[in-house]
């Protein structure tokens, strides 16, 4: 299989995420419903933000690289609350 054709799931499957039961990303659905630019959907390298047909944003936190891109690109004050997951959880890099 050529390099470009790997699926996003395959891409992410090589990273280890120790998922905590509590989400460290919280999104304010009301603010997102009003958002037309959805920067987070484009920019999140882990593709955690998915627009819904109803105009909102569904988010995941499990495969988060904890990079901070989402809250930095989001220009809607307070739409994305973001902190680090509990110690010992989240992404664990190996060859980076």
């Amino acid at each position: 299989m050529s390099q470009q054709q790997i699926s996003f799931e395959e891409r992410m499957a090589h990273s280890e995420f120790r998922v905590h039961e509590r989400a460290h990303i919280v999104v304010d659905g009301k603010v997102c419903a009003e958002c037309s630019t959805t920067e987070c959907v484009t920019a999140c390298p882990a593709n955690l933000f998915v627009p819904t047909a109803a105009g909102g944003i569904v988010f995941n936190y499990e495969q988060c690289f904890e990079c901070g891109t989402c809250y930095l690109v989001c220009n809607k004050e307070g739409a994305i609350s973001w902190s680090y997951p509990e110690g010992g959880h989240g992404i664990v890099f190996q060859r980076t």
């Binding site: 891409r11 090589h14 690289f65 891109t69």
Partner: peptide, 14 residues
């Protein structure tokens, strides 16, 4: 340069 290589890890940082 990377032909035939296999992805080992994908990562991101700001």
């Amino acid at each position: 340069l990377i032909k035939g290589g296999e992805i080992k890890e994908y990562s991101a940082h700001v």
